[in-house]
């Protein structure tokens, strides 16, 4: 019996003194790599995958448009909609929206505005082609189809 008792005498505490350090490290990682949510998404966003990605360097020149089926189907129906900032817009409002975005930039940089289209993979080409036509009219001709990196093929 005495032998068994000796064995149960092993110290069982996990040292927790370094826990705050570990957690702070995680915290700093997230603070550095992420950014604050500016808009709350009202459309479904399942971004398609692609391999030939290009990265946008100047974030101040990027304006985001979200396209997809509304998350509140009861309220807005199932047809894909365009979300700009925090509200739904119509295709005919895109020119005005582009001009608003351009007005935020310096005058010399206005032509370099890049529109990042974040389109749900189930959205149809028809709507996107309409958006493209409006963007051409608004003279915002740099376009980026936002995609995720596909690591399977390369």
């Amino acid at each position: 019996m005495a032998k068994f008792k000796k064995k149960t005498n092993v110290k069982q505490d996990i040292p927790t003194s370094s826990m705050p350090d570990v957690v702070f490290m995680l915290l700093f990682f997230f603070m550095v790599t992420t950014e604050m949510r500016k808009t709350s998404l009202e459309v479904k966003q399942q971004i398609p995958k692609a391999t030939q990605l290009r990265k946008l360097m100047r974030k101040s020149l990027v304006a985001n448009l979200y396209v997809g089926e509304p998350t509140k189907v009861q309220q807005y129906g199932k047809e894909p909609k365009i979300q700009a900032d925090d509200l739904f817009i119509d295709t005919k409002d895109i020119i005005r929206w582009v001009n608003e975005q351009k007005a935020k930039l310096d005058e010399v940089e206005r032509d370099q505005i890049t529109v990042s289209l974040k389109v749900d993979k189930d959205a149809k080409r028809g709507l996107i082609a309409d958006i493209e036509t409006e963007l051409r009219k608004a003279n915002a001709r740099k376009l980026l189809y936002s995609t995720l990196e596909d690591n399977d093929q390369n």
């Binding site: 997230f30 790599t33 992420t34 950014e35 604050m36 949510r37 971004i47 692609a50 030939q52 990605l53 290009r54 990265k55 946008l56 974030k59 990027v62 990042s116 493209e132 963007l135 051409r136 001709r141 740099k142 376009l143 980026l144 189809y145 936002s146 995609t147 995720l148 990196e149």
Partner: peptide, 13 residues
């Protein structure tokens, strides 16, 4: 926060 995604297929209209 969100992880920013600034990547995609770039085209010129």
């Amino acid at each position: 926060t969100t992880i920013p995604n600034n990547k995609g297929l770039s085209i010129a209209l």
